[in-house]
Design a protein around this nucleic acid. Structure first.
Lengths: 238, 238
DNA sequence: TACGGATACATGTATATACAACTTTAATTT
DNA sequence: AAATTAAAGTTGTATATACATGTATCCGTA
């Protein structure tokens, strides 16, 4: 973890406050300690404290208001994480099940990615897997995922069942999504897709090709999605 | 324009540099003047200059490298700006035309926004307008936009024809999009939409409801989109 | 009781400065 | 000529301070 011997003070402040917010010590709508309080606690000065608070503002954890203070913002889902929501009611974890149709394997890159691969990505090869998300035992979202095999030891043997793939990447490999790009169509379901998603052939489904960029060089996540949106919709934060 | 009499110096620096980059004075990959140079030019000190450069880094206009300088980043489309691209070829500006179907007017908020409005948003009232984007004179994207009427003097009388709505907001009111949320469906085109988009009734179209958050308190942009994706797709960066 | 103003406290903007760490270039040595 | 070293220039981190501006509170006065 130690990259340059020491971590800057403002970095420590960020990490501490982040942790306290995520742990619920400071809840949504509440105020963080004032800049001057933090100065005393950390034996530092306002510019340093402000550098930390500015960063927390940037990542959306707090908002700031002159004369009032630093307000904990509403919790936000991770960048570019797609979720499926019900049109009428929310979708809880209990009735959501993810099934791996094809386990992660090394294979060649597909042709129709619609994105230009870097040399390093091509050289590293491609990990591929397919998942199907079910809500109340009804298949809703078919997802084909491709990513470059860079700095991901033993990835193909990890279990993605019942775990968020992006969470695994983050916890085991410190990978974070920093941005992305997606292309969206509406298409009529073909025979294969309509069977998998239990729809009448010709039903409108959402098709997406997305590229998620990460903090790791040349590690991008490409995925092709097909979603039955008759009773649910795709939900997307950025 | 003048909200509090004076604009801060660091703000002026941001605007100046932004303009120079967008005008091509500083091109992609090139270095901006060093912090010390900027200090001399603007008769100020490094913390102030750094505040401006930090902002430019945040909005992705530059990257910074210790020991080297501020590097102009590759041009990126604005956050949350939807563009429409051809499946086979790119869509240039020349064959893209935006038509205002309904000019901006004050009206009541609609019911089915799918987002909870803040008290201030409700109180301020709603500006509404409808646009239709055409590519090669074929209507592709129908867009209904709602936003709260907060600090936007004379907005309803501004022309949005042939101009990016978000660009107008940015240039005249210093509004920047900081994040957002979108819900996506595929639906079959009803009679009205199929007529507007020149499709056979029942054709699959993409329907989105999006919320764009801005740097201005309680100013959010809500829009409902309907897109013909037979020959084009929606392109989205985050 | 209700209003108005003083006050305390919060963040916003800005100056001035110092040293650390990294990059590039130039000078020196081998 | 090549490798090493030194120097200059750049951004990164941090301290110390001052005043401006927005918010909330309390208290005295009408």
């Amino acid at each position: 973890m130690q990259k340059g011997e020491t971590t800057p003070l403002y970095r420590k402040l960020i990490d501490d406050l982040k942790k306290l917010i995520e742990e619920g010590k400071y809840k949504q709508g509440e105020l963080l300690p004032s800049e001057n309080d933090l100065c005393k606690t950390y034996s530092t000065t306002r510019p340093t404290v402000r550098q930390a608070l500015a960063e927390l503002t940037n990542i959306g954890l707090i908002t700031r208001q002159q004369g009032k203070g630093s307000i904990v913002a509403e919790p936000r889902r991770g960048l570019g994480i797609l979720s499926v929501s019900g049109v009428t009611a929310g979708v809880g974890d209990q009735n959501l099940k993810t099934v791996i149709l094809e386990k992660p394997v090394k294979q060649n890159w597909p042709q129709e990615l619609l994105h230009q691969l870097s040399f390093e990505e091509q050289a590293a090869g491609c990990i591929f897997f397919t998942r199907l998300r079910n809500i109340n035992n009804v298949p809703i979202l078919l997802e084909e995922t491709f990513l470059s095999d860079i700095n991901l030891p033993r990835f193909t043997s990890r279990s993605l069942e019942n775990r968020s793939f992006l969470k695994v990447l983050n916890e085991h490999y410190q990978v974070e999504v920093t941005g992305g790009e997606q292309k969206i169509w509406a298409v009529a379901a073909d025979k294969n897709k309509s069977k998998l998603l239990r729809l009448k052939p010709g039903s409108p489904i959402v098709h997406m090709k997305r590229k998620l960029k990460t903090n790791v060089r040349d590690l991008n996540i490409y995925s092709w999605l097909y979603c039955n949106t008759e009773n649910y919709y795709l939900d997307d934060y950025f």
